[in-house]
């Protein structure tokens, strides 16, 4: 008798439970559909897409979008936003090149040490930025959007002030050859790096307490705190990890470009938010999975490549990116409207 009442409650509340459509959408139905359509359409319209060299190129671009997109995802699932991700990439690119320039001057012949030192210093800068962002957001409960917008301005200012907008050359050659252009098992090193980061994110999200706490803080900060989650520390972890990933992106981009540039990363905030949102990361926090963000980043990379192949003006590519972002969100909103309470 008593067990019947309980099960009855469940059966009587079908509207509370996810419908099949909801499930499909939540488990990445949109992304997978988008990706398949984009790949097939591109391959049909432009067979050169399947060319090995082109695919390698797609992979490299994908890798360099995936890493900062995962950074964005971490912050967004924790209920924030990171508009400073592009600025961190630019700043750490400058830092990487500067360290190499200086390091190679003082310690000629110690290339490997300099390459590693520049990575460590770049990562340190990224982590510091994340710490400051998180500190301001959690200690003063400021809007993450405003904080990272201001941080973006600060970082861009610093990067531009030190370089005056001029690229820093003098990046170690072997760094460019082995990291930027290097391959392992036929795939670019940067792709391996990105896949490593992706795997780490997946494990972190699913199998660690930190991952769970990030979701909890993003979903409902008050409840998380009352449940004993150290919300401040969780936010710091999320923003610092994001900073580290953005810094890694800056480092790897430097290896591809062969110089430190203060002007890269301009549209990265948009691109990473687009990848995260298309990958199903909720703008309200608490929802988002790394593997789907990866699919979304791949989708965006394929589209960008397709536009390059059919020689669309690069300026129109931002237009398409903006449109794709808005359309994806509109579709999500319209399909899931009923779920919103």
């Amino acid at each position: 008798m008593s067990s019947e009442t309980a099960t009855m409650t469940v059966a009587n509340a079908p509207s509370h439970r996810a419908s099949r459509l909801d499930r499909f959408l939540m488990q990445g139905g949109i992304v997978i559909t988008f990706l398949v359509v984009a790949v097939v359409a591109t391959a049909l319209i432009e067979p050169r897409f399947l060319n090995r060299l082109n695919l390698l190129n797609v992979m490299r671009n994908f890798a360099l979008l995936l890493i900062p997109s995962l950074a964005q995802m971490l912050v967004m699932t924790a209920g924030g936003f990171d508009l400073s991700v592009g600025a961190v990439v630019a700043a750490t690119s400058v830092v990487t090149a500067a360290v190499m320039l200086v390091g190679n001057g003082y310690f000629p012949g110690m290339e490997l040490a300099v390459i590693i030192a520049s990575l460590v210093i770049a990562l340190g800068v990224g982590a510091l930025v994340g710490l400051v962002n998180a500190g301001l957001v959690s200690a003063f409960s400021l809007s993450p959007f405003m904080v990272t917008l201001a941080m973006m301005s600060v970082l861009m200012g610093i990067a531009l002030y030190f370089t005056q907008g001029i690229p820093i050359y003098g990046v170690t050659d072997s760094f460019v050859a082995n990291v930027g252009r290097g391959q392992f098992l036929g795939l670019p090193i940067v792709l391996w790096a990105a896949l490593g980061v992706l795997a780490a994110c997946i494990v972190m999200q699913r199998f660690t307490a930190l991952g769970r706490h990030i979701y909890a803080v993003g979903s409902d900060q008050r409840s998380a705190r009352l449940s004993g989650v150290a919300t401040g520390r969780t936010l710091i972890a999320a923003y610092m990890l994001a900073g580290l990933l953005a810094a890694l992106t800056g480092y790897l981009m430097t290896s591809r470009l062969g110089s430190g540039q203060s002007t890269i990363g301009g549209t990265l905030a948009l691109e990473t938010i687009a990848a995260a949102v298309i990958g199903g990361v909720s703008l309200r926090g608490g929802v988002g999975r790394a593997e789907l963000v990866a699919l979304a980043a791949l989708f965006l990379s394929v589209i960008a490549n397709a536009m390059n192949l059919v020689q669309v003006d690069s300026r129109y590519q931002t237009l398409v990116l903006g449109a794709v972002l808005i359309i994806a969100l509109a579709i999500e909103r319209l399909l899931l409207r009923k779920r919103q309470s």
Partner: peptide, 28 residues
């Protein structure tokens, strides 16, 4: 006023803030 996190599952909520782990990984 509940202190449940809407985006986590029943099990995850019951153990929220008191997760059992072995090393870095959760004992799911």
């Amino acid at each position: 006023e509940f202190s449940l996190v809407p985006d986590l599952t029943v099990v995850e909520n019951i153990f929220l803030g008191r997760e059992q782990s072995s090393g870095l990984f959760l004992k799911r």
